[in-house]
């Protein structure tokens, strides 16, 4: 009778349309006839009418006026901060990679350090890079599997 994704039966459709004042003139006649002939539908009409009496008296709470005054500034600040984070992240990755590369070169060239210490430091660095890549890959995977990501007009 009722599928959340599909269609509802004709009686329920007329019931909904009548409720929301969206009946066509010929449908109105059909619905009135149904309502007088079908006690089950009439009961449902009365039950939903009680609900509508309640919801008709409710409305969404107004937001404070000061919120609207600063709304656009907040949106713009968010955008600016987002851009700033992207720039900081790109810069940090480039500079960090460059620094890490030189650090590894210096480390390997240092004759005073025992070999096992050099390789241990290298293992720590490679492990950190792998962790970072793993986290980034996971985030990208999540965004790709988001069912709404393609939404655009």
């Amino acid at each position: 009778m009722n599928d959340d994704r599909g269609r509802i039966g004709r009686n329920e459709e007329l019931l909904m349309r009548a409720f929301d004042d969206e009946l066509e003139p010929d449908e109105r006649f059909e619905f009135e006839r149904l309502l007088s002939d079908n006690p089950e539908l009439r009961g449902e009409w009365e039950r939903l009418s009680k609900l509508q009496e309640v919801t008709a008296n409710m409305r969404l709470r107004n937001a404070p006026e000061e919120m609207w005054a600063g709304y656009w500034n907040s949106v713009y600040s968010r955008f600016e901060r987002g851009m700033a984070w992207i720039l900081v992240s790109i810069g940090a990755i480039v500079v960090g990679s460059w620094g890490a590369w030189h650090f590894v070169q210096d480390l390997m060239a240092d004759a005073d350090l025992p070999t096992f210490v050099k390789w241990s430091i290298l293992a720590v660095l490679v492990g950190l890079v792998m962790l970072l890549v793993s986290v980034l890959r996971h985030r990208i995977f999540v965004s790709q599997s988001d069912p709404y990501k393609e939404i655009e007009r």
């Binding site: 994704r5 329920e12 459709e13 909904m16 939903l48 009680k50 609900l51």
Partner: peptide, 22 residues
């Protein structure tokens, strides 16, 4: 979404609310 889906979801929502507020 199709209009049928809108009515179907609305019908289901009202049914649930009517039961809850009985």
């Amino acid at each position: 979404v199709p209009m049928g889906t809108v009515m179907s979801r609305l019908y289901a929502a009202r049914q649930r609310l009517a039961v809850r507020l009985e």
